[in-house]
Amino acid sequence: MDRFVFLTFDGLSKGAVLAAFALALVLIWRAARIVNFAQGAMAVAAAYAAYTVTTATGSYWLGLLAALVGGLLLGALVERAVMRFVDHRSPLAEVIVALGLVLVVQAALGMVYGNEFRAAAAPFSRTALEVGGVPLLSRYDLFVFGAVLLVLLGLALLFTRTGVGLRMRAAAFAPEVSRLLGVNVGGMLTLGWALASAVGALAAMLVLPTELGLHPHAMDLVFVSAFTAAVVGGLDSPPGAVVGGLSVGLILSYVSGYLGSDVTPMAVLALLLVVLLVRPGGLFAATVARQA
């Protein structure tokens, strides 16, 4: 029973990060109807920016800031310089371009930083605090929960309470009408990519200290889990991403806890497969609905 409780808390804190990362995917999906398969590589790039800044200044927080700003800029750059020119009538073209971007980013990171693991610093202790003899949550886990909650609240406020949020939603739902009403639709798309990429960067910063550390491929498996979470949540809904993230986190935690961590990567892929089978076309269902 203790083990179950421990695994549950562990799964929830893993899930919180997956939720944040899934949220980044949902943001881009809502803005551009694209699954950004380059999200993981882009987030790692931002985390390397943090690594550089933290190494130079000795401050985790300046590094975190660098990752967020770097994420924003990288997202905007990818939209402006690459995605804008992809033929949006073909989802396959977008997927292929995104996968190409993954290769380019990972190769560039490998060239600059080398293909070895580098320690990712955590700002708080990762030792779990015990409650009644059962180790439950560490200070770092609490930091992760707090950060994800803050992002959720911030996004909810942005989209429901601000003019920019209203513009972003309108631009995604009805681009032509929005332009007639004075909305800079291209700008909103860039902003959507920037925001999503910053959220992705934050997720990477939160998850890397709990994994093996920093590496050009460090987010590959996390991406698959987060993608699964986003699909579970329906791709279109931020609350769905959170529910999906927490569910996937729990499942992975139980699998690695009871069956062994070697099985986890396979479990992630199996889960993705099951989700895609159970929700056939679930991925693109929203697109079809919108076109109708």
Binding site: L166, R167, R169, A174, V177, L181
Partner: peptide, 23 residues
């Protein structure tokens, strides 16, 4: 006001109207 009216179906009445004056 385009043909077919261009009401943003996913937004509320209030949001549609606010959108018209956001600029």
């Amino acid at each position: 006001v385009p043909e077919g009216r261009g009401v943003v179906a996913e937004l509320t009445v209030e949001e549609n109207l606010r959108l018209g004056g956001l600029w």
